[in-house]
Design a protein around this nucleic acid. Sequence first.
DNA 1: CGCCAGGTTGATTGCTGTCAACGCAAGTGG
DNA 2: CCACTTGCGTTGACAGCAATCAACCTGGCG
Lengths: 233, 233
Amino acid sequence: MMTFAEQFDRFAQLHLPAHLGDDAILRFRSLARPVDAARDVALGLDEGSDHLVFVSSGAIKLVAHASAGRNQVVAFHFPDELVVVPARAEHSYTLSTLRKSDLLVFDYASFADLARSDPAVLRSLLDTARSSLSRSREKSLTLGRKTATERLASFLVGMAHRIGVEREGLTFIDLPMSRRDIADSLGLTIETVSRQFTILRDLGIVRTVGKSGVQLVDLRALEARAGYLTEAA
Amino acid sequence: MMTFAEQFDRFAQLHLPAHLGDDAILRFRSLARPVDAARDVALGLDEGSDHLVFVSSGAIKLVAHASAGRNQVVAFHFPDELVVVPARAEHSYTLSTLRKSDLLVFDYASFADLARSDPAVLRSLLDTARSSLSRSREKSLTLGRKTATERLASFLVGMAHRIGVEREGLTFIDLPMSRRDIADSLGLTIETVSRQFTILRDLGIVRTVGKSGVQLVDLRALEARAGYLTEAA
DNA sequence: CGCCAGGTTGATTGCTGTCAACGCAAGTGG
DNA sequence: CCACTTGCGTTGACAGCAATCAACCTGGCG
């Protein structure tokens, strides 16, 4: 559990320009609402407006909802990242924690109004939006055109980059999300995800440790199965 | 075919703030490269850097490429819209025209550098990125969790909003893209798209006129089949 | 040590993909 | 002016991958 001061300082360091005056910083600070949530909790955000959420610690998922209880995990986010949470449109969105998390919640409109005065803050927001857009487009390709094996391989390669740690020369991932979350992120069922894990394990490409640990034994082979474009157009 | 002056004026009116000085406008103008392309042409953009493309006239598609020749249409764009075209990453992206189009191409980095001085330009860019992100997330839900019927219904409802025209009290859409483009956008095959059109036609929900015309006879029924979230969470 | 949510494995179904033929409209050239 | 071609869309038969339904297993926690 982090203090509000710790959280905001971290946020300011990463997402606000260094040159910002004390008064401006205080104004941003007054917009930040700290939320300290346990594992597997849906944040009750006002669905009528957009929000900006900074992840101080923990891990979260942004989920889109369709009819008949079908869910699609639109994005996972990890510490130090900033997330744009859209208001309800044709579908609604919820933000949930994957593990105990410390978050800072901003009202998007208020934040953007304050940022109006400072180009550097806007640049930072723009970069956040662009990298989310980029990941979302990659996800579209995955969901629209890849097989189950390729989806899981792409997922693991992506997670390796974002939360993987080196251990004895190999990449190790401690997945904060359940098989259901992975399935909802990849547009598959939990059973299919499980079977794909089994296939990769039997091929000796990954090793699973308990329910959440994954050791990437052969990253090359994993990438080869991810359906990436191999050669220039 | 529009003149460069016409195109840039339109762009400036929509995406640059009114208060911008003549010298600043001229600098943005000097970054704009006019491209006037025939139907079904892939723009040869440098894949090493991001671009910003303004659609003056026509219609375009942004396509992501996976291995084995699989393509995913990531976004369609129509006149007056601004598109962020990403550099090649794990997959590559190409921008192609759907019909004869007039475009203005900017190098993203140069544009953003110029915009550094003006918060209003950045706000505008940020809004562009946010609306693309929003559409991309909706697409993730469609690709990950919807059935073929729901995908086509969602697609038609979306297109109705963007390029539909009222005619005799009904919405009429003149689709600029082929069945293949629709399939590549919805993560389906052309045969499945065709069959779904037949189903909606047989149900009396839409009427097709030639290859590109679609008359939405019963918009309510179409929306009901789009898989939208019907009730509040 | 025993519970039990979460994960794995197996049998079967079904939606969409694949392969193939046909239809139709627009364009071309004799 | 019409036969031929060509590109796109539609329809049909069949196959296959992932979903569904159903046990069974496991490891993390009290």
